[in-house]
Design a protein around this nucleic acid. Structure first.
Length: 272
DNA sequence: AAGTGGACCTGCTAGC
DNA sequence: TGCTAGCAGGTCCACT
């Protein structure tokens, strides 16, 4: 589900409110993707510090260590003063004196993992190998071009891999490739430097636009206030197979499958 | 090393 | 109306 914009929107919606709160209890539901990695009681009485984001992960700092959180495909976080009794899909509650941070995740691909530092233990292992942040000044066409050298996978799959640049998932990878006019099936090492420049810019623009619109809500995404996003209403190709290309070039959006994921693109204006 | 496919889990929708 | 197959925003891991 949540790609970089949704995770960042979520972060912004509760980070300031939870900062300084003291943990009073921790409740676990069904198992998530990975075990918490500590006894829940050890978190009690610690206070919450900054909430930061790396790729699609959130790091919630505590006095001693912190929690690395991932929303998987169907997860969302809510922070509310008066949390209701947990529903069947509420699998983690961090109860504090200011409210409860709750992870709701029907499919349970998400995770909450304790580590002594973001670069240590289980968290370090998950974050190692992540590519550049898309808004890092170092992420540009030159970086993209260099990272794609020798890679034969289709550019769409290279973007989804997350080892070159993080944050663009299935929706935004499709949208960015559309903006850049690049066929998602293009072999990574065949992308010229100028096209890499355009793609890097398109990724940043697409993610920026999504952030402004509060992310995408396909079915269940909500920020920590319960607000839905609106980017999906403006998606140009994602989910629009069979529709006329918005560029008015006479192309019709196609849906194909790459690496077992759906890809949407206009064969007319997106070139190899 | 890089590429491929399977795995994890549940809910919703389209189609019969 | 009811059942089933197929699909969904992610990404790790085993295998070639």
């Amino acid at each position: 589900m949540p790609e970089l914009p949704e995770v960042e929107v979520t972060r912004q919606s509760f980070a300031a409110r939870i900062r300084g709160a003291r943990v009073t209890a921790v409740r676990l539901g069904k198992p998530l993707r990975w075990p918490l990695g500590c006894e829940p009681e050890t978190l009690v009485s610690q206070s919450v510090g900054e909430v930061t984001r790396r790729g699609k992960y959130l790091w919630l700092a505590l006095d001693r260590g912190g929690l690395l959180m991932h929303l998987g495909m169907s997860g969302s976080l809510a922070f509310s003063a008066a949390a209701q009794g947990p529903g069947p899909h509420d699998h983690f509650d961090l109860v504090t004196n200011r409210g409860t941070l709750r992870l709701t995740d029907p499919r349970r691909f998400g995770a909450v993992v304790w580590a002594s530092a973001p670069d240590a233990g289980a968290a370090g292992k998950l974050l190692a190998g992540l590519g550049l942040e898309p808004f890092d000044p170092a992420f540009d066409g030159a970086h993209l071009h260099a990272a794609l050298r020798g890679r034969k996978v289709a550019i769409k799959q290279a973007l989804l891999g997350g080892a070159i640049v993080v944050g663009a998932g299935n929706i935004y990878a499709c949208e960015a490739l559309f903006e850049a006019g690049i066929d998602p099936r293009t072999r990574s090492d065949r992308l010229s430097r100028p096209r890499c420049d355009r793609l890097a810019e398109a990724i940043r623009q697409t993610l920026t636009r999504a952030l402004e619109l509060g992310g995408s809500t396909l079915r269940d995404f909500r920020d920590a206030h319960g607000m839905a996003g609106e980017f999906q209403l403006q998606a140009r190709v994602y989910g629009r197979d069979g529709e006329r290309c918005v560029r008015g070039d006479g192309g019709v959006v196609r849906r194909i499958v790459q690496g077992q994921r759906a890809t949407f693109f206009c064969p007319r204006c997106q070139r190899r």
